[in-house]
Design a protein around this nucleic acid. Structure first.
Length: 159
DNA sequence: GCCAACGTTGGC
DNA sequence: GCCAACGTTGGC
């Protein structure tokens, strides 16, 4: 009996485009997804594996929506900004022998010709299907189920 | 700029 | 361990 490799998982990662947008990722090729300081989001980041797909969502902008795709290239990376007193993400309770915050490196995979807007997402999906549609949701990293992924990719094709 | 929602902090 | 106060997020 062979050990089956699990299929790549799918995620949604949020960023404010004024801070870091899909265009920045396209320019950089890849980046360290640093600065996440929420335990639930961190736990999702730790579950990511190389090859996983991430939908790149632009938040706090007009209009908000999914701007493109990224791919996880390195997982379980200690976020170095937690040790840097100059960083806005500095965490005085973290130390190199006891890191608290882990993240991933992601590579640019696609920039959609047109944003899949939040409005489109709301009309196509329920709150249970897409966690970002939940009222008051603040999680910056969320998992996406396979059946939702196919419909999202179809929406991206249409755009 | 407003404000609802939610996570975190800290006094007790 | 409770919970009020506070800070942040993010759509509108």
């Amino acid at each position: 009996m062979s050990v089956a490799e699990s299929a790549p998982a799918n995620w949604l990662i949020k960023s404010e485009p004024t801070t870091y947008s899909i265009a920045h990722l396209a320019r950089d090729g890849q980046t360290l997804w640093d600065g996440v300081r929420n335990y639930q989001a961190r736990n999702f980041l730790q579950a990511m594996r190389p090859g996983d797909r991430a939908f790149f969502y632009h938040s706090n902008t007009q209009p908000p929506g999914i701007a493109g795709l990224a791919q996880v290239v390195t997982s379980n990376v200690v976020d170095p900004t937690q040790f840097d007193p100059q960083s806005k993400y500095f965490d005085p309770k973290a130390s190199p022998d006891r890191p608290r915050w882990y993240t991933v490196e992601v590579a640019h995979a696609a920039t959609f010709d047109q944003l899949i807007t939040l409005e489109q997402l709301r009309s196509a999906f329920s709150e249970d299907e897409l966690l970002i549609l939940r009222r008051g949701n603040r999680l910056s990293v969320t998992p996406i189920a396979p059946e939702v992924v196919d419909r999202l990719l179809a929406l991206a094709q249409d755009s």
